[in-house]
C-alpha cells in the first residue's frame, strides 16, 4: 500500500504541538552532546585481546601465519566433518587448495534450503573489534551476502590481524552505512531460559575464527 499523507501530516502536527516549549530558533546542534567518552578502552595488544575476547564467547580462535592458512583451513574443516562448504564469491582461491570436500558456489545464488543442507560456510571479514571480540561483516568480497554466514550451522571466519581495531567507536567510524552490516560476537546464543546464556539457537552454532598474522 502507499503511505497515507494524512497520517504523516497528523503525526508531525502532534509533534510540533507537543514541542511548543522548544524555541523556534533552536537548531538540533544547539542541544549539547558530550563526546568526552574514550575512543578505545584497550591498553595492550589489540590482537591478543581480540583472541581472548572471542574465546570468551566459546568460539575457537587460532592464530595462523599467512603461509599456513590453506593447511589450517583444511585441518579445521576436516576436524568438524565439513564436506559440503559454502564459498562466497571473492574468497581467495589459493586458501582452499588443501580442502578436499565439495564447494558450493553462490553464483548463481544458492536457495535457503541449499544453504541449510550445507555443512558450513567460510568467509573473510571486514573488521575485528578487540574489546568486545566482535567480527564485522559488510558483504564485501569473500564474505558474500548475509544469508551465507547465517543459515549454515558452522561459520569459519578469517580475520587478518591488521583488520583488528581496538574498540567499538573506532569500528563504527570505519563502517560504510550503505552496506548491509552484521556484527557477530560469538556463536548464536540465548539468555531466555532463566537469564542464563547458552550457545546455539538459530545462527551458526559453531564459530571458528582464524586470525591470519600478516608475515
Amino acid at each position: 500500500m502507499e503511505p497515507v499523507a494524512e497520517y504523516k501530516a497528523e503525526v508531525l502536527a502532534r509533534i510540533r504541538a507537543a514541542l511548543r516549549d522548544v524555541p523556534d530558533e533552536e537548531r538540533p546542534e544547539d542541544v549539547a552532546v558530550t563526546r568526552e567518552y574514550v575512543d578505545s578502552h584497550v591498553t595492550g595488544d589489540v590482537v591478543d585481546l581480540f583472541v581472548e575476547r572471542v574465546e570468551d564467547y566459546r568460539a575457537t580462535v587460532t592464530r595462523v601465519a599467512q603461509a599456513d592458512v590453506p593447511a589450517e583451513i583444511a585441518r579445521i574443516l576436516s576436524a568438524r566433518g565439513v564436506e559440503n562448504l559454502v564459498v562466497p564469491p571473492g574468497f581467495p582461491e589459493e586458501w582452499l587448495k588443501a580442502y578436499q570436500g565439495l564447494r558450493l558456489s553462490d553464483e548463481p545464488p544458492l536457495t535457503a534450503a541449499e544453504l541449510d543442507d550445507s555443512d558450513g560456510v567460510i568467509t573473510l571479514a571486514a573488521r575485528g573489534i578487540a574489546l568486545t571480540g566482535t567480527i564485522v561483516l559488510d558483504a564485501g568480497p569473500g564474505q558474500g551476502r548475509r544469508a551465507l554466514s547465517l543459515v549454515p550451522d558452522l561459520h569459519l571466519c578469517l580475520v587478518r590481524a591488521s583488520q583488528v581495531v581496538a574498540d567499538v567507536p573506532i569500528a563504527i567510524r570505519a563502517l560504510d552505512p550503505t552496506r548491509p552490516t552484521t556484527l557477530i560476537s560469538g556463536p548464536s546464543a540465548t539468555s531466555d531460559i532463566e537469564l542464563d546464556r547458552v550457545e546455539g539457537v538459530h545462527g551458526p552454532r559453531t564459530l571458528d575464527v582464524l586470525v591470519v598474522v600478516d608475515s
Binding site: T178, R179, T182, L183, S185
Partner: peptide, 13 residues
C-alpha cells in the same frame, strides 16, 4: 544482557 556485545547486530539501509 550484561555482555560486552550481544551475539548479533544487523544494520541495513
Amino acid at each position: 544482557t550484561a555482555e560486552r556485545m550481544n551475539p548479533y547486530t544487523s544494520l541495513w539501509t
